[in-house]
Design a protein around this nucleic acid. Structure first.
Lengths: 338, 338
DNA sequence: TTAATTCGTGTGGACGTACACGCAAGAGGA
DNA sequence: TCCTCTTGCGTGTACGTCCACACGAATTAA
């Protein structure tokens, strides 16, 4: 572990000169620049993070650009928890996180919320690129600010890291869970809240794909509940009905069907261990929940960005979030792990 | 973020005096001790890790006391991977990890391996207390060195953190997985490698407990394979047989039954995504695997110890590792997450 | 009474980096 | 010739903590 001072000694100059070379601050003779660069290279100089971050002046600021927590409470809130945990781990290292929220139903709000972040001079940001065009716009406006994706990915952009769950694997898993108990289902539906949401569409497609060999699958969007309700209740008269809710609203569907006194006729598989889903799972109203470790996504995204900014070099990576299966028996005690 | 210097100013003393109080180095008047403690408390003083670890002199050394990786390859190796990842995160912070391995079949080797760690002057250690008496001995010999437990716990000792999976919940989950497809099983067995292993016994007991209402469960230890094999093959003639392997040897059982051409007659649920188990799961020879996030256990244990040593104060905690369910459809791509 | 010890406290590095400042030498313009 | 501006470099200090050392005063021992 060679230090600036040692490089200076070897090069026969002062530490200040080495510092200027290392930071491209100029005012150094070409020969010295060359010599210092070479010595640093040969000895594998790595700046000491401790010393570097010790001056309180330069604080590292991360931006988090997310949908409003209120709209999809559990999941995004848990991601935020993960971000906060990372913040706690990093705060002794002089780093902080600023948030900005967009409305996932208003594409324009994404870029607006992003600009709010940039106005507070962030060094990097984390976002869920669920509004693809907005994300492209933002990335092209600020090409030098590194970012990481969580929740879903966008193949044509180059985040430093990309933490998301493979929606195809998730759909297959849901299909398997549905069919585990033999082929006792009489009919199967998928339901999604957000029309056009990438993850949702892919999950539903993969699920349908696996189901099709033995049965028809009907796909619904949740905006027309009345129609859907009627259809579901009717289907339940001819046997057990499978419902795959591709976003975190399974509890809502489950509660409504339960209110009709028909809960027993449905086998519901949903996503994300929100408080409500957790309760329904524990009450037996939901059959299984697929999780995607929101807390870990948030935490690891911040850590990855931190490492990237510190070690300067660092590979761009795509990391697949595991498909967690929760049934009544393995509901985690502590939200810490989610 | 109040600093030592600021505390000193408020208390009307020098930084050196504050330092002595904070480190219990004595040689300070009672009044000043009291005053400084109060000021630090009131302002929530937290030592700055950067400054603290900047003096290269004091390097933090963690010990890892584990069973030989070879004997139970996948699981312990993955824990070691988690430890290594934590090490990478901490190495800029002047910390390292030294390993020592014991033979889980030789109780004496635990303490011997432990003493090897202490001879290299560790500040804290991580271990799996599967040899309970050895662990008690070691803890009493070195009462001042903090430790964290992974894999399993030992209620009469006081680790700083205790990361382990609730074996009861794991057993219940296995039972549920077995019975998901209706009551189509004709007979059920549990198999364990290590007689007397705490986790294994508890898992088997919980599983048996859940199964009992509808069917008999036979418990086997793997040491007498011939006898067991005969019994299993015979049982398979009268219907589908459930096997719950309470440690990571499910693949071994599965391969043997497959070699008998009888794989289709068994539904096997096992533990830990070792390479072999992963393959069997993917080939359909194993029905489900229960995971316990070994990588996370290792990683988080190191981090928890680090935080404990740095922030001085820190609560003793028991954290339950989630019961992960893996079926063919959700085998994680990347071992990173395990 | 004098010397030795203890106690309470302050001082001043050191860790490695960042950066402001200052200083000398030379170039250019009036 | 004097003044200013630039270039190339060194110096000094700050960041917060740790710790060795020093120093006066009080206490104890001889």
């Amino acid at each position: 572990m060679i230090t600036i001072k040692e490089i200076a000694e070897k090069a026969g100059v002062s530490a200040g000169t080495v510092d200027r070379v290392l930071h491209d601050r100029g005012r150094v003779s070409p020969e010295n620049i060359e010599k210092i660069r070479r010595i640093a290279e040969e000895n594998g100089y790595v700046p000491n993070q401790l010393a570097r971050r010790l001056q309180g002046s330069r604080l590292l600021r991360f931006g988090a650009l997310m949908p409003e927590l209120g709209t999809e409470y559990g999941y995004w809130q848990q991601i935020a928890n993960g971000l906060e945990e990372a913040k706690r781990e990093l705060e002794t290292l002089n780093a902080e996180i600023v948030y900005s929220f967009f409305d996932r139903k208003d594409p324009e709000s994404f870029v607006r919320a992003g600009e709010v972040l940039f106005s507070s001079d962030i060094d990097a940001y984390i976002t869920a690129p669920i509004l693809a065009d907005g994300m492209r716009e933002l990335a092209s406006r600020h090409p030098d600010v590194p970012y990481a994706f969580i929740d879903s990915s966008l193949p044509d952009l180059s985040p430093i890291f990309d933490f998301s769950q493979d929606p195809i694997a998730a759909g297959y898993t849901a299909a398997r869970l549905m069919r585990l108990p033999g082929d006792d289902l009489s009919s199967v539906f998928t339901i999604q809240m957000h029309k056009g949401a990438f993850n949702g569409e892919m999950r539903a497609a993969a699920f349908t794909d696996r189901m099709r060999p033995c049965m028809q699958v009907e796909n619904f969007y949740a905006d027309r509940w009345e129609e859907m309700e009627e259809r579901l209740m009717k289907a339940s008269q001819s046997g057990l009905v499978g419902i795959f809710v591709v976003d975190d609203q399974a509890s809502m569907i489950a509660r409504k069907l339960d209110a009709n006194g028909a809960a027993g006729h449905f086998r519901i598989v949903g996503f994300d261990l929100s408080e409500e889903n957790r309760r329904c799972l524990s009450d037996g109203l939901i059959y299984a929940i697929i999780g995607q470790r929101p807390g870990m996504q948030g935490h690891d995204a911040v850590m990855a960005l931190y490492n990237h900014l510190m070690h300067v070099s660092s590979p761009r990576e795509r990391l697949s979030v595991p498909v967690d299966i929760y049934i009544r028996e393995n509901i985690p005690e502590s939200p810490h792990w989610l």
